[in-house]
């Protein structure tokens, strides 16, 4: 069961709207390395994890990612407040605006809507943990690329926070891989079998 806490994990306070920036940052909501995919991926992978410690990690990280969906959405909301039709056209935001106005729709920067094809639930313990290690690196690189494109310190600050969290999550999925190897392999090989299915 989930309950909601009425706060952002890290504050978002952006003074100047900037729809051109929203156009790229939206990828971290609904793009291939985005927070919506991350949260759903980890929370859905839990059911084939055969170790309570690994389930705990996936639960906690997946739950935190739900909070990151909200943070990225808050950034998008604040970047697209009070826009004139002229500002919308100048920023090239018109192609988004025509279908979504300034609603916060999960899509990639390229305009491709969020796809569940970007999240993997393989039912294989080692494959899923490796998937998540890669996913955290991919999210980190998207935040790095966003930071290369952003000058506004109000935007950079929460993006830097989110980038740091990807690094911490990468470390903790590394711990999960260690637990899985320690518990389910003969330790000489990194991978032997799928402990969720092959008993």
């Amino acid at each position: 069961m989930f309950i909601y806490e009425k706060k952002l994990q890290y504050p978002v306070k952006i003074k100047n709207p900037n729809p051109a920036l929203a156009k790229v940052i939206i990828s971290q909501l609904g793009g291939p390395h985005g927070e919506l995919g991350a949260a759903t991926r980890y929370l859905q992978q839990r059911f084939s994890m055969p170790d309570r410690r690994i389930i705990g990690m996936f639960t906690d990280i997946g739950t935190e990612e739900l909070g990151h969906i909200e943070m990225v959405s808050a950034i998008l909301y604040q970047l697209t407040r009070g826009l004139s039709p002229d500002a919308i056209k100048k920023a090239g935001f018109d192609t988004y605006f025509v279908d979504h106005t300034t609603g916060v729709y999960p899509q990639a920067a390229s305009g491709v809507p969020f796809s569940t094809e970007t999240l993997s639930v393989s039912g294989d313990v080692f494959a899923d943990i490796h998937e998540n290690l890669a996913a955290e690196q991919k999210a980190r690189l998207s935040y790095d690329n966003i930071l290369r494109l952003v000058d506004d310190p109000d935007v950079k600050d929460p993006i830097r926070f989110l980038r740091e969290r990807e690094i911490v999550h990468y470390q903790r999925f590394g711990d999960c891989l260690g637990i899985a190897q320690e518990t389910f392999s003969n330790k000489k090989n990194f991978y032997q079998y799928n402990p969720a299915f092959d008993k």
Binding site: I3, R52, R53, I55, T59
Partner: peptide, 17 residues
């Protein structure tokens, strides 16, 4: 029931899901 109620915190990963 929640992580903040897991004292000691090891109870979070020891009790069944």
């Amino acid at each position: 029931l929640t992580k903040s109620a897991a004292i000691p915190v090891s109870r979070w990963t020891e009790t069944p899901w």
